[in-house]
Design a protein around this nucleic acid. Structure first.
Lengths: 198, 198
DNA sequence: AGACTAAATTTACAACGTGTCGTATAGTGA
DNA sequence: TCACTATACGACACGTTGTAAATTTAGTCT
């Protein structure tokens, strides 16, 4: 009768869902540090004390939400990763699946990934660098040269992953002006260029 | 007599410096959302009320600190950008100056740029992607191919700037394992590869 | 169905953080 | 020296936090 499936009380699922939805709503309306357990509970139409039955505090709730996010993404990705195709096909498939998943839940991801503080500092630097890089590209035009790469592996990894996630955040902030498939293709163009290793 | 220079009361400079130092200290010890005006004032050895004479609240203080950070960086960069050399030389010079500046104030930058919440989500995603990319590089080995690039300019900008700042954050978190000059060279190798434009 | 169990509510409390008062003190600049 | 102003101090009303009961409500199991 009882499989390994639903052991969890529907009430806790309901409460957590209400809390998460309320959190996303509030994060759309105000900065994160203005969100109190009070407001959260009120918006979620649950009692404030109930919050503490589920989470230690708001940072703890974020932690759990992040865990769930990663779990969800793994669910989306892992299935397709099993069949052994060529690395390029796998990468493309996974990337497309990731971007489509994000696009499908763009309200959540936009508000969660793009929310402020202390992203301010990173944010500011990013804005400045965006300007400089933009100028650089304008000046250089299409005269870029392809160098013989001699690049540290860890640096390449830092570089690629930061580029990937940062681009996704910009894509979300711009309200998804490109399709997941198109963006994935662009990524692979950019990424294969940078993936030389020592 | 009075030039355009120091018009500001040394007391306010002192107070603000105390506050900023205290903030960096506290951010080393605890998460940002645990930093209260109380603790800040106590650590800065100023009266709590004095804080409100300078800043509206803690987010406002962060805002101002970010402004100052950008100003400082502009001071470091702009001088060298004036003389009209080739784009490559300018880029290299500026990048090295930027990285050296960050390395010189690495305690500040590390604590400010690398501090948590709600970076958690971005953080988690980044960690996951780092793993995936790392695997990808391992599998592919040195068989990367250089594609004829046909890449949207805005995507390339998103990509490059996110990569740049993300790499700097990783570099800081790893406690500066490479010299600024070396890292700058690696950047330029990676960056010129990605700067194809449509 | 009814008994058992777990979650959510309600009320209350003490501790702390916030933002803003006057007013007193002490450092600054001419 | 003197006017000016930043800082210190004590105090206030108010919201938030985290916890502890006792109680009600809803789900589970047979």
């Amino acid at each position: 009768m009882d499989k390994t499936t639903t052991k969890t009380d529907p009430r806790v699922l309901r409460t957590r869902q209400l809390l998460r939805d309320a959190f996303v709503e509030l994060l759309e309306e105000m900065d994160i540090e203005k969100i109190s357990v009070n407001k959260l509970a009120e918006r979620a139409t649950i009692n404030r004390v109930t919050f503490y039955l589920h989470y230690k505090d708001i940072p703890d709730m974020l932690e759990k939400m992040a865990d769930d996010m990663i779990s969800d993404i793994h669910l989306v990705l892992d299935r397709s990763a099993i069949k052994s195709e060529s690395p390029e096909v796998i990468n493309t498939t996974m990337l497309v699946k990731l971007l489509e998943h994000i696009a499908d839940h763009s309200k959540f991801y936009k508000v969660i990934l793009a929310s402020q503080r202390t992203t301010i500092f990173t944010e500011r630097l990013l804005r400045m660098l965006t300007g400089l890089i933009s100028e650089g590209i304008d000046q250089r035009g299409s005269h870029s040269y392809v160098a013989k790469a001699n690049i540290q592996k860890d640096i390449a990894i830092w570089y690629s992953s930061a580029a990937l996630i940062g681009t996704i955040v910009s894509w979300l902030r711009a309200d998804l002006p490109y399709s997941p498939v198109f963006l994935a293709k662009q990524f692979l163009l950019l990424r294969t260029l940078s993936e030389q290793k020592e």
